[in-house]
């Protein structure tokens, strides 16, 4: 019986190694200077890169963080510092329900919200879609680390006659800062690989983006459109892009592990 269970575990972890193996085998050879500095080339032409997609992903993540982090952290503060048991139950429930909303649905919602009224796909729309997805993620992790801050620090602050909001911002949040940063990094790593919410918001772009009100390229979008294309060159580029995206996400996770180990 133990053998069978061990075998199951092996089957569960095998895909990660298989995926990493093929990413490196198929992708590493196409990773060169051009890949990071050049725009995509039209089909049939050799070379080209994903510089615009890499920059685009960074820009989208920046916008997502600008929306998701403040709202998520403040919401977490409410749950941990102000909310009653009853309201927290429902708010957490709402956060969990939102975490379960399929990512493609976020794309549709933001399309209806920002693309239709402004009559154009845009980087803004993509950033908003990813940012909205981050809110419940950041909120839950923030709450979890804030409640770990001992009550005695809050009491000490109050006994000094410090206003509550200063206690929360300067003492409580500062004490839990590593945990909050960890949560934000995990949320960023999660949305960095999202494709579906960008399909009809950021749309993708084969050139440099000149304004955030225009469509913008992103790594996952580029990987998707190259992967389903009929060209071998593009397939190679897709593997290389996937390798870069995977490295980005893995390094985020490694940083998180490093930070949270340091904390204990």
């Amino acid at each position: 019986m133990t053998g069978l269970m061990g075998l199951s575990s092996l089957l569960v972890i095998a895909p990660l190694f298989l995926v990493l193996y093929f990413l490196i085998r198929e992708g590493a050879s196409s990773l060169d200077w051009n890949f990071f500095t050049q725009l995509p080339k039209p089909a049939g032409e050799q070379g080209g890169g994903m510089a615009n997609a890499i920059v685009g992903t960074v820009a989208l993540l920046g916008m997502a963080a600008a929306i998701g982090v403040p709202i998520g952290v403040m919401g977490g503060v409410y749950l941990a510092e102000y909310g009653s048991a009853r309201s927290n139950y429902w708010l957490r429930f709402a956060a969990d329900v939102l975490n379960g909303v399929p990512s493609i649905v976020w794309g549709m919602v933001v399309y209806a919200m920002l693309v239709v009224p402004f009559k154009t796909f845009s980087a803004y729309a993509g950033g908003v879609a990813l940012g909205l997805m981050m809110i419940p993620l950041v909120m839950r992790t923030t709450e979890e680390v804030l409640v770990l801050v001992p009550q005695s620090y809050r009491e000490a602050g109050l006994a000094l006659g410090i206003a509550r909001w200063k206690i929360i911002t300067v003492i409580v949040i500062k004490t839990a800062l590593k945990g909050i940063v960890t949560g934000v990094l995990i949320a960023l790593a999660r949305v960095a690989g999202e494709t579906a919410p960008l399909l009809f918001t950021a749309l993708g772009n084969n050139f440099w983006n000149h304004s955030l009100a225009e469509p913008i390229a992103a790594l996952p979008l580029q990987i998707f459109s190259y992967a389903i294309s009929p060209y071998d060159d593009w397939h190679r580029q897709a593997w290389a892009g996937a390798l870069v995206l995977m490295m980005l996400i893995l390094s985020c996770n490694v940083v998180v592990r490093f930070v949270s180990r340091d904390r204990r």
């Binding site: 569960v12 690989g193 992967a227 389903i228 996400i249 893995l250």
Partner: peptide, 18 residues
């Protein structure tokens, strides 16, 4: 297993196709 959860859907798709 935690890292497996971090692999983006589109990368599984790429690996799936090829």
């Amino acid at each position: 297993i935690e890292l497996l959860a971090a692999v983006p859907s589109v990368i599984f798709g790429l690996w799936g196709i090829f």
